[in-house]
């Protein structure tokens, strides 16, 4: 296989995983967070089933705190490729007024992301959900399998994973058991960017530098995307040329000043970067091994 490049091999592996899960598991769904990893995964899925349509819907867990730009991007992509999109909001959380400011980040992410995802998966009875997780993101992910099984209640047991040999995936599930499938497990952040560049894949605008209103919080720049953001007394948002390395809820996503306006610029910046991707995610900094704990509780 020496004549294939690393990107070609990664692409082929991901397509193989997507097809295998769709062929063997009833009622799959693809989690679509609109971020670059989801966008690459969606691109791979379109390749896997071309010239046919995607044989599964997309699911967006909407916290109601997304960057406005990403929502309009989502709707445009869905229309452009004729995709089926399910948008789920945790109505209980909305009714109880759970926001990052009212209840703090851990409660907010648990209610509006983790619980919301579980609600949506249960409501539609999805047998498998594709996610854009990568093993290089975080140490506990490095040991997760490509197919990860969740018992009823969505808990993950890192001690009880199925071995994965060759490209043979055991997709059988028991009652109440569901699958999280990670087709781009073996991609690194740089692979994702190089692939976006090679394939000319369109991304939401917030990845690219632009003049945006921001305030500084804990050493990172937070975009004031709408008038719900609580400014401190006397505080005003400053307009700076910033971009974001990850997309989440805008009040929890740290941006930084940058002049990168193209994918090539971003790659240059990434290669010269001095901090890792998750640094911008406030969610990961609560406690050591926090991602692993969240995952055991059912976070994707």
């Amino acid at each position: 296989m020496s004549s294939l490049t690393h990107l070609e091999r990664l692409e082929a592996e991901s397509i193989h995983i997507l097809r295998e899960v769709v062929a063997e598991v009833e009622n799959p769904v693809m989690l679509y967070s609109i971020g670059k990893d989801s966008t690459v995964m969606l691109h791979l899925a379109r390749k896997a089933f071309a010239p046919g349509r995607l044989p599964f819907p997309l699911l967006h867990i909407d916290t109601t705190w997304n960057f406005r730009e990403t929502i309009s991007f989502r709707d445009r992509i869905v229309a452009q490729y004729g995709l089926d999109l399910i948008v789920h909001v945790n109505q209980d959380g909305l009714r109880d007024g759970v926001t990052p400011f009212s209840h703090g980040t851990p409660v907010y992410t648990d209610v509006m992301l983790t619980q919301s995802l579980r609600q949506a998966l249960d409501k539609h009875g999805f047998g498998a959900a594709f996610g854009g997780g990568r093993r290089d993101e975080e140490k506990s992910r490095a040991k997760e399998r490509i197919l990860s099984f969740r018992a009823a209640g969505h808990r993950w047991d890192p001690r009880n994973q199925r071995p994965e040999l060759w490209d043979l995936y055991n997709t059988r599930t028991g009652p109440g058991e569901t699958i999280r499938a990670f087709p781009i497990s073996n991609w690194t952040e740089l692979d994702v960017w190089q692939y976006i560049h090679r394939e000319n894949i369109e991304l939401p605008g917030v990845y690219f530098a632009d003049r945006r209103p921001v305030v500084e919080r804990d050493g990172v720049l937070i975009m004031v995307d709408d008038d719900r953001y609580p400014l401190l007394p006397g505080e005003v948002a400053h307009t700076k040329t910033v971009r974001f390395r990850t997309l989440g809820c805008y009040p929890l996503t740290g941006g930084f000043e940058s002049g990168a306006r193209s994918v090539a610029d971003i790659i240059r910046e990434t290669l010269l970067a001095t901090s890792s991707e998750r640094q911008g995610r406030v969610i990961d900094r609560d406690q050591p091994a926090s991602m692993e704990k969240k995952k055991q509780e059912g976070y994707f």
Binding site: L4, T5, H6, Q194, R198
Partner: peptide, 10 residues
């Protein structure tokens, strides 16, 4: 740089 890196093997 990107062109040369797209030809990397694995």
């Amino acid at each position: 740089y990107l062109k040369s890196h797209e030809r990397k093997s694995l």
